[in-house]
């Protein structure tokens, strides 16, 4: 009985009004609000608050160069968070993305050093990423291993592998190759390429989730796996392919990392990316149980996190505090989510 009541409350809280049904009489403001959604609105509000507080403390925050810094800083974690959203919508989790990014970063630089061909090195790195993701997916589906455990294992494994092949040191130098330089510092229409990559990945995934049967099936699997299975959706295939795609995106992140630093980095720069990506997705309203969440929410949350980090840096806050802030934020985001679901259970879930 009680669960029914909670479900009701939940849906009333964030009922999305149909765009086609909205009718012409509704004001554009209302339509806009509905398009954005309650959760996203509170995030945008938090973002505005952050900008005001940080900006009033240090006006340099608004410099174009600083905005570009924020943009390029969030691009790598951004694509990971976007793809992590799909994984979490399925009801899974991928903790190994940071390690996979480190591994592919090293691979891209090492392959580049053997033949000085950026294209080949990027393709090899992407292949390694897909293989890493595929491995996760196969272990989860066919080994019936809990996703957290499986990717926790590969979190350690991929990192170890990266350190092993690189002897734990930065590898190669890509700082003179035009392609890598273009990725790292190039601009199109005044916007850095790194940001373009984030925008492209986000739009692609958004359209996939919103407009294709694949996306709708992903929501169905996370919302009620039994129902999805009985409706004839091949759960195993979806899970394996999505983890492989996660690996692909981790490889893109690794390549961006190589380009930015000019060398293959086994751990530096990739460490902690998984935490940031999961925090962003949770903050953006993706339910840990799956089935609920949007790319728009995740992207806004990525921006909020980026601004927060940048703000703490330019306000000279000790960087260790940033880790603490991030941890607290993750817990707070999930607590808010659970409250909205109406979970009032005592003891273990």
């Amino acid at each position: 009985m009680s669960s029914q009541v909670h479900i009701k409350r939940d849906t009333e809280g964030r009922q999305e009004t149909p765009s086609s049904y909205a009718g012409v009489s509704r004001s554009w403001l209302r339509t806009a609000l509905n398009a954005i959604g309650v959760q996203n609105l509170s995030l945008l509000f938090a973002l505005a608050l952050l900008v005001i507080v940080i900006g009033s403390q240090n006006p340099n925050f608004f410099l174009v160069s600083n905005l570009r810094t924020i943009g390029t800083a969030i691009s790598i974690v951004g694509i990971l968070a976007v793809m992590q959203t799909i994984i979490m919508l399925l009801g899974g989790l991928d903790i190994s993305v940071g390690s996979a990014a480190g591994l592919t970063s090293v691979v891209s630089a090492m392959v580049f050093m053997t033949n000085q061909n950026a294209g080949v090195s990027i393709l090899v790195a992407l292949g390694v990423g897909v293989a890493a993701g595929l491995f996760n997916g196969l272990v989860i589906v066919y080994g019936r291993v809990n996703a957290v455990i499986a990717t926790l294992a590969t979190y350690a494994g991929f990192r170890g592998l990266a350190n092993l092949i690189s002897n734990g040191r930065a590898q190669g130098y890509t700082g003179t190759d035009p392609i890598y330089v273009f990725i790292a510092r190039g601009s199109l229409f005044g916007v850095p390429v790194l940001i373009w990559i984030l925008v492209c990945v986000a739009i692609f995934v958004h359209c996939l989730l919103r407009y294709t049967d694949i996306g709708r099936n992903i929501y169905a699997i996370g919302g009620n796996a039994t129902a999805a299975r009985l409706a004839g959706i091949n759960l195993n295939r979806y899970i394996v392919v999505c983890y492989a795609l996660m690996g692909l995106v981790a490889a893109i992140a690794g390549i961006m990392l190589t380009a930015r630093t000019g060398s293959g980095q086994p751990t530096s720069g990739s460490q902690g990316l998984e935490l940031q990506a999961i925090t962003a997705a949770a903050l953006g309203g993706v339910a840990m149980q799956g089935g609920k969440g949007t790319i728009a929410g995740t992207v806004i949350a990525v921006v909020v996190l980026g601004v927060l980090q940048n703000g703490l840096t330019i306000l000279n806050v000790n960087s260790f505090w940033q880790d603490i802030a991030q941890g607290l934020l993750l817990v707070a985001a999930v607590i808010v989510q659970q409250r909205r679901r109406g979970v009032r259970a005592v003891g273990l879930p």
Binding site: D213, N217, G223, N224, A227, K292
Partner: peptide
Amino acid sequence: QALLMHRSVRDNICLTVLRKLSVMR
């Protein structure tokens, strides 16, 4: 075993025929 409680009536009805309703997915 059947319903996606948070999803719309439309979503729930069309789940088994999404592929047939799609052009290029």
